[in-house]
Amino acid sequence: MARLTAIGPRVHRVTSLRRREAMMGFLFVTPVVLGFVIFNIGPIIASLVLSFTDYNILNPSPRWVGLDNVRKALGEPLFRTALGNTLYYTALRIPLSIAIAFVLAVMVKRASLSSRFYRSAIYLPSIVPTVGSAIVWVVIFNPQYGLLNRALGLIGIHGPGWLTSPVWAKPAIILMNLWSIGGSFVIFLAGLQDIPSEYYEAACVDGANAWNQFWRLTVPLMTPTILFNLVMESIYAFQVFEAAFITTGGGPLRATYFLALYIYDNAFRFLSMGYASAVSWLLFVMIMAFTVAVLRSSERWVFYGGGEQ
């Protein structure tokens, strides 16, 4: 009883303190939560409702059409072209960006002396606004006086039209966007720095060379980071928009007409906001399906350490 009397007020004080801290915590997160609900959740729900309507943004009375928008999209040749372009872009962009960011991170970690410079140099392009960088890339890709074709010319290669060629425009956009892999690179670098050096020392003692260390130690230990970057990169890749919007407008011959451009055109240029909402949800379903598939597959190839896979 005496013990209880002694502890009682302390417990009360702790509970009161916790409650006050919780209140302060809620107070500080409230703006973010409110902003998310009003500016993200609200429009998401609104777009879901609008996707079942024929809604022209200038006319405030949407007309219910059920699944007509989805049916229309699936039968529309231009939707299929945009979908094909988006899948092509995603299929090439994801492995390339992951591989390049990973290799660069490994190289920068090894070159520890100058890594601060390289870290900055590789990350910097990812914070340059796409509008600015896209204009620079237009000049670089210019078949007539662009740097890239001039450089190729020095080694005897006649460069293509890049952004003006229906065949090369998509690879050009991929190349352009690979310039901003800084985000993935930094995450890989952080992941690499988390690998204890004792593992490598032990591998050295066991006689593993650099190649074996990379494939049997670095890569398996980095699989959780690879998974994270894979998911993030796929979300970005499916939504590719700005580079094509600025440099090609979707051309030539619709070669760079991606789904996000198709959505934009329908929403704002053709005033079919209901249809654009439906296509947005189709895109969301695709991204979600891809993400779920990747996460499911991760059970087989992601190594979380401690014998748990």
């Binding site: 237009v138 007539q144 039209g161």
Partner: peptide, 10 residues
């Protein structure tokens, strides 16, 4: 078309 398109009005 590809060559001429390189002369964009920038």
């Amino acid at each position: 078309a590809e060559r001429v398109a390189a002369f964009t009005s920038a």
